[in-house]
Simulated scan of single mutants.
Amino acid sequence: MKKAVILGTGSSLPERILTNAELEQVVDTSDEWVTSRTGIRMRRIAGTNEQNYQLATSAGRRALADAGIQPEELDLIVVATISPHMIMPSTACFVQAELGAVNAFAYDINAACAGFTYGLDLARNYIHSRPDMKILLIGAETLSARVNWADRNTCVLFGDGAGAAVLSGCGDGRGIFGTNLHADGRLWKLLFMDSPESRNPDLQREDWQGAFIQMNGSDIFKYAVRLMAESVNSLLTSHAIGVDDISLMIPHQANIRILKNLRDRLGVPEEKVFINVDKYGNTSAASIPIALDEANRQGRLVRGKIVLLCTFGGGLTWGSLLMRW
């Protein structure tokens, strides 16, 4: 049976770099405070002609080039995002138009930071039904438009960017072979971003504070490490795979404390964990595909070797995925 295989990857990052030292001029913080607590030294901030869909299109175009696929060959475009260009139409429709992917249907998904991993599972199931499908999956965020720049607990964490992958069916033993995904909507208040204020007075809420990210950082830390570790261990056990069998782990780039605690809890050697949070911060749904593309272009993804992805985000949503590269 053919599995869903990543044929190519791409990423796109805004030109502007916002350092911790520059943030000191915006909010009550310091480079030492941010670096020691998060591992983040800088992040990218979108500017003119770097709207969400434009970053997504650029990443998608690079993934198509890497895969040797033309836009007209695509059957589906999915964009994972919590910061879409518009609520309607979907960012994926903008990407479809920009690429000229006239034969693809298109839509967005929202699973917060877990969006790209959820999207990989989605693509896997499409390809299981139609192995010849060619799918462009993108994680794209412009979170600089969705943070409260007066809140030092959140504004220092997030950045902008996009990452993409092209998938299709392959029967050579490679591809996605296991997923373990979860959600718990009861815990939504730990990490959320409100909608714009209702235009219907009867639906306006007294507790509405603004359409920006709000987070309970200490609780998120505890849940993120424990739930990702449980998901990974369950997935490895179900496929009779040990940590030593993993060639590379690419986790969601939330902050360095979460990544180190997760690594230690799982027993994964430091050299097998891909980390770039220091350069880009938390880019939510774009986090894993940006890291995946960097790892690919650095030659750290070895054909035939097992790659592990794990993620955690608002919802709460979390999970893990195994593929043979």
Rank of each mutant, 00 (worst) to 15 (best):
N282S: 06
L266S: 14
V268W: 08
L321D: 03
K305W: 07
L322N: 14
T311H: 12
A295C: 07
L259D: 05
L321A: 05
I275E: 13
F312I: 06
A291I: 08
L322W: 09
E270G: 07
Q253D: 07
H239F: 01
S284A: 15
S284H: 10
A291W: 11
A285P: 15
G313C: 05
N282W: 02
H239S: 01
K279D: 10
I258P: 02
N255R: 11
L309Q: 01
K279M: 13
A286E: 10
K260V: 01
F312W: 08
T283I: 05
Q298K: 14
N296K: 12
N296R: 13
D293F: 02
I256W: 10
R263Q: 15
I246Y: 04
V273G: 14
D264L: 04
G299V: 00
I288A: 07
E271N: 15
G242V: 06
A240F: 12
G319R: 02
L316S: 08
A291T: 06
G314A: 11
V307Q: 13
K272E: 14
T283P: 15
V302N: 14
L301Y: 02
Q253I: 05
K260A: 05
R265T: 02
G267T: 09
D278A: 03
G319I: 02
L321G: 04
R265F: 05
S247P: 01
R303M: 03
I246M: 12
P251G: 00
R257G: 01
N276I: 07
V277P: 05
A291D: 02
P251M: 04
I256H: 14
G313H: 07
I250E: 04
D244S: 10
I246F: 11
K279F: 10
L301H: 04
G314R: 00
V243W: 00
D293S: 14
E271I: 03
L321C: 07
P269R: 10
R300Y: 08
S320T: 10
D293C: 13
L262A: 12
K305Y: 06
I306S: 14
G304E: 12
E294C: 06
I288P: 08
